[in-house]
Nucleic acid binder design. Sequence first.
DNA 1: GTATCTGCAAAACATTTGCAATTCT
DNA 2: AGAATTGCAAATGTTTTGCAGATAC
Lengths: 135, 135
Amino acid sequence: MLEQIVGRLKAAGIKPSMQRIKIYEYFFHHENHPTAEQIYQDLKKEVPTLSKATVYNTIGLFIEKGLVKFTTTDRQNARYDLTDTDHGHFICSVCNEIYDFPYRFSKQYSDLEGFEIQSEEIVIKGICRKCLKKH
Amino acid sequence: MLEQIVGRLKAAGIKPSMQRIKIYEYFFHHENHPTAEQIYQDLKKEVPTLSKATVYNTIGLFIEKGLVKFTTTDRQNARYDLTDTDHGHFICSVCNEIYDFPYRFSKQYSDLEGFEIQSEEIVIKGICRKCLKKH
DNA sequence: GTATCTGCAAAACATTTGCAATTCT
DNA sequence: AGAATTGCAAATGTTTTGCAGATAC
């Protein structure tokens, strides 16, 4: 696992420092698109000297190198996604949890002829099953 | 036209003040999802006493009453959409312009059974034709 | 005249930046 | 030592809030 993390960082041209490994690893263990704040709060327990600036800067580096991308689910806080699979995002307006669901993009949009497509995202907002049950 | 604006505001339970009419009207005349700042800058010419707080508060009221909703295209600045039609958003990563394109949502997602769906948005990022031509 | 609405200034909040201290090789 | 990385504190930029004055009914 750790080998895989380090390998991917190196492959992306990123020197695998302690902080970078921990942050990248965090994305693998926390699938529901954490905010920088959540990453910071959780990792501080393991790496007490960690600063929020480092979290932001490191994620910025990951984005630049293509390991991670923004989701556009949440306008308040930035949320991130590993750049692996085609999937849609459902965000619950009560608990703010993000759920991934399988979704295949069409890749072809007749009304966007002549446009270069770089990424596609579908965002569904509503109330998740867990929150619906609470009422 | 003005009648239509005023009518919609009243129907939504919003008292149609000068500022509110101008701001709501603005959305009808500017289809590409302006930011609060753009609305403020443009309307200031007509309504010099307008303050940015009023723009934000008024849009907030519109959202609360369901006349307008956030788009999730842009993480830097809030952008808004009239809650009318089914369409997708294309955002150009060069000029930051938003293009609407026809898109029919499926409304049915087998993997979201038991979830209540309130809104759907598809966001495609890339480079628009205009910017591609410049190179 | 009372309730609502507006606008200013300040506050709040997420994110970025400059720079000094630290770490790694 | 030299280069890269990190962490702090301050800056930035957007959005929200408190409150006093203005407006509308």
